[in-house]
């Protein structure tokens, strides 16, 4: 009986401690997430970002980005579990022709030094300006145009797959803007 009482008391104190810690950190965590997203968007787009508007549909978040000098552009974020070690989330920025401007890997758990090359500039460069029409989104091993990272084909496939899906979702979301760039 004494055991039950002691456990209950410890449980209540533990729950209270966690609740307080959660309350105190909720603000900073949300701020940190927002900042990470903002920084990621800023890395994708060449102009200085003034404001970001986001909207979600079917698990995909779309961003409308406006620059300080009146520039505007769009981006979207999606996740893929096709990676080597679980979930990869990418933020994809599009240029005016609905092609890929650049992307940024928000979270991944690929092998450091190998799969994480998908976050680096040398790998990202090959996708810039590519859309559904002018690029075969399979990796070169499967007969496509994507130069996979050596020994990290799975991570490379996950990224090119996510980018291709992003392009399609983007074209669906903005059918007028992207008319003509959609694959027949």
């Amino acid at each position: 009986m004494r055991g039950v009482i002691v456990m209950t008391i410890i449980g209540i104190i533990a729950a209270l401690t966690m609740a307080v810690a959660n309350n105190l950190t909720q603000g900073p965590i949300a701020a940190a997430k927002g900042r990470t997203k903002y920084e990621a968007l800023q890395e994708i787009f060449p102009f200085k970002i003034a404001s970001v508007k986001d909207s979600e549909s079917n698990g995909v978040v779309f961003f409308e980005v406006s620059g300080t000098k009146g520039e505007s552009a769009s981006a979207l974020e999606l996740g893929t579990t096709q990676g080597y070690a679980g979930l990869i989330e990418v933020l994809i920025g599009f240029d005016a022709d609905c092609n890929i401007l650049d992307y940024k890997v928000v979270t991944h758990s690929e092998t450091p030094g190998l799969g994480d090359k998908i976050t680096q500039d040398d790998f990202r460069a090959q996708f810039r300006g590519k859309g559904l029409k002018n690029f075969d989104w399979r990796v070169n091993k499967d007969g496509g145009d994507v130069d996979a990272v050596t020994a990290a084909t799975i991570s490379s496939r996950a990224i090119s797959g996510a980018l291709e899906r992003g392009l399609k979702l983007f074209a669906e979301k903005y059918p007028n803007k992207c008319a003509g760039s959609k694959k027949e």
Binding site: A14, T17, M18, A32, K33
Partner: peptide
């Protein structure tokens, strides 16, 4: 109830640390 109590205490501090890392070092 020694072990369950210890586990609860340890898990509480782990949760606190997890929240702190999420907040201050994403």
């Amino acid at each position: 109830v020694r072990i369950p109590c210890y586990i609860v205490i340890i898990a509480t501090f782990v949760t606190v640390v997890e929240l702190l890392i999420q907040a201050f070092s994403p």
